[in-house]
Design a protein around this nucleic acid. Structure first.
Lengths: 253, 253
DNA sequence: GAGTGGTCTAGACCACTTA
DNA sequence: AAGTGGTCTAGACCACTCA
């Protein structure tokens, strides 16, 4: 019956919106996102039921549902009929589908092993500074590793992270295969989205040696910029991939 | 009040569903899709209002909305508040965003020109037969063209179409830049989705000559299989692209 | 059987567009 | 002012899960 909650609560953050109209469910989503970002809701956790959230937030169950559905569409939540709503975990099965688009030409997709070649910190290059939004004084961590599918090396990748968001990174004894799970568990950083740019390049002598391919062989270069839940850039990754028996898959809908 | 429409109408097509439960809005979507597929609703056309459709189909307005929203999410419809719901058109602006993922490294995306090098019909290769689901007696049309961005040739592509779905193709005097619009207007075939596979390859002598690049230069190979609204494969396309100043963009959410 | 998400309805009001 | 899609609510029932 009472329905004037849109404008009154719209000014909760003093941001410079051009024209103020934010639907209630969008406001609800923002309040729920805050719980995720602040770590009040951790990966794998069971959320309160729709009815309970509706009571807490003083809106109808349908409005809560719209907010939850939109977060589910962004792979942030997982809903299961009869069970409840859970915070999504950066598991292999999910990561594979969402962030790993390489499949063998024949046969079913598989997650590659990885072997770290080197780690260390350094000053960022101009490209890294721009992509990660760093200042002159900031440092970065660089990881280089080689990834194999059923024994065959298929790609070599360089991961760049801003040091200030990953304190004590050098204390790590091992770097696991699934680094997004590591970011989440160790530093509470959840990767929510990423942009990738693909090019074809010729293998450098260095990469060719590590990958065991011809010098100058065509490689697929994948540059990824991954962002956290607040859309801040977190990770820059350059993968150079042998695509003789493998391809990068994209669905256009 | 009355709400038992799910099971009764579920058996409208005698397909072999494992367990019969299809929500009402999914049934509504199927009925609306039929109008699109059969050409009762043509690109650009204004649909009846939600209320009118609800009356026609004897369901509530909210259920019609769910079906329309899902079709809008698939880029089949376009909804504008205050105006109405329209059938989506294969316009450059939409196509560009949905089906053309190549952007210059610097500057804003632009749609390339194209110049046809050759057309003709032939017997399909094994790959073409498998991808397009063709039999031994079927023929295909092949188009080869070169595409340029601001004067610079950037890719050469081979398009393969099943002859039986594109009758009198050889009567065409010109082949326009936007072929999906042509498919729609001339043969009533709407491209609804596509899958792409990307690899890095070395330029063949033939491609290098046409593109004006080095022999063996790394090219991005994009193999696309495009499907119509009923998910039948319609077009197979092999693009070989120079990615010196251009990249293929993907968003992972 | 109790609790959860999923569907469906009915009705009200809001924001936007066009006449 | 009238018509459209967009939001919000309230309440009912259905399908699924688990103790």
């Amino acid at each position: 019956m009472e329905n004037k909650k849109q404008v009154p609560e719209a000014a909760e953050s003093g941001s410079g919106e051009p024209i103020g109209f934010k639907p209630l469910y969008a406001q609800v989503r923002e309040r729920l996102m805050r719980r995720l970002v602040d770590g009040a809701w951790l990966p794998g956790m069971l959320l309160p039921s729709e009815m309970e959230l509706a009571r807490q937030l003083n809106v109808s169950q349908g409005t809560v549902r719209k907010a939850l559905d939109s977060m589910t569409a962004d792979n942030l939540l997982l809903r299961r009929q009869g069970r409840g709503t859970y915070v999504a975990e950066p598991e292999e099965s999910r990561i594979m589908f969402q962030f790993f688009r390489l499949s063998p030409d024949e046969g079913s997709p598989n997650f590659p092993d990885s072997k770290v070649l080197s780690t260390g910190s350094a000053s960022p290059t101009k490209t890294e500074k721009e992509a990660l939004g760093l200042g002159d004084a900031d440092e970065v961590i660089r990881i280089e590793r080689i990834r194999s599918l059923s024994g065959q090396p298929i790609l070599i990748e360089t991961i760049t992270l801003p040091s200030n968001r990953f304190p004590d990174f050098d204390h790590l004894t091992i770097i696991p295969n699934n680094v997004y799970r590591l970011y989440s568990e160790r530093w509470g950083i959840t990767i929510g989205s990423a942009e990738e740019r693909l090019k074809a390049i010729a293998a450098s002598a260095r990469d060719a040696a590590k990958l065991g391919c011809e010098n100058g062989e065509p490689l697929l270069l994948i540059s990824r910029l991954a962002r956290d839940l607040e859309n801040r850039p977190v990770e820059l990754r350059w993968s150079r991939c042998i695509t003789r028996e493998i391809h990068y898959a994209v669905n256009l809908r």
